[in-house]
Design a protein around this nucleic acid. Sequence first.
DNA 1: CGGCATCCGAATAGATACTG
DNA 2: CAGTATCTATTCGGATGCCG
Lengths: 144, 144
Amino acid sequence: MADVAEAILRSSAIAAQFGIWEERDFDAGRCPMRNVLDRIGDKWTMLVLMALAGEPRRFGVLLRMVPDISKRMLTQTLRLLERDGLVTRHVFATTPPSVEYRLSPLGLSALEPLHALAQWADANFATIRASRARYDDGLARTDP
Amino acid sequence: MADVAEAILRSSAIAAQFGIWEERDFDAGRCPMRNVLDRIGDKWTMLVLMALAGEPRRFGVLLRMVPDISKRMLTQTLRLLERDGLVTRHVFATTPPSVEYRLSPLGLSALEPLHALAQWADANFATIRASRARYDDGLARTDP
DNA sequence: CGGCATCCGAATAGATACTG
DNA sequence: CAGTATCTATTCGGATGCCG
């Protein structure tokens, strides 16, 4: 029961947050949530952050760790993370050159909410899949 | 200092999570995080969830609350949320018909990690903007 | 009021080839 | 090794019009 009460409180907090953002209008440039989601919500960012969570990684290592990502997309993702200050880039002037990427303190701090989200996703994915199956089945039966 | 240690712990947990998901391969259909991010990471889902946080809302109300969303996108977003079981749809056979959407218990539970993410976004957005400005400025100066 | 169908331009991302 | 450049296929989303 306590968690229901907490959920209600949270929903009020979210609703209030929505109100605040609404007043400042939701212009993508100024809304923090839209900005953050635009970044971590894309196809690869979250996987790259996770791959960097344990220790710094070199470009080629990341390329092999993150499944199916292309060099083009990995470069772009890393550049955007670097631009936002979540990741730092260190070039070692060896031959052949090697470049290491690591999470900044800011990037590390982002792992907290992202981990919470990951936990929720893991805990509720089965339920969601079941709901999808029911929904799709319902549609399928009414159609033919 | 304690929070640094916690951050390290979290990063290990994330790295471990990555390893688990990696083994089961990250196929979009089977990876919980990719599924969840594919949903809440799109342009409108988060805003719709926030608009529904406080109380149930009718379609037309949502259309006015969420800035710049079109009927097409609102319908699509609500359908996907309904399919995943985060939102329930209630039709009232009045004339003209009215349809109410509300968060399910599952949807309510999702607000917790999302709220954490929203807090992080709000707290760190200024830092991120500053980082972007520095980065862009650095690029601008080296170019011409 | 609450949708669905269609069209079309814009944005995304994969494939491929080339470079210091 | 760590990128960059270019081209193209696909996806996304806005606009519009129609319906119960």
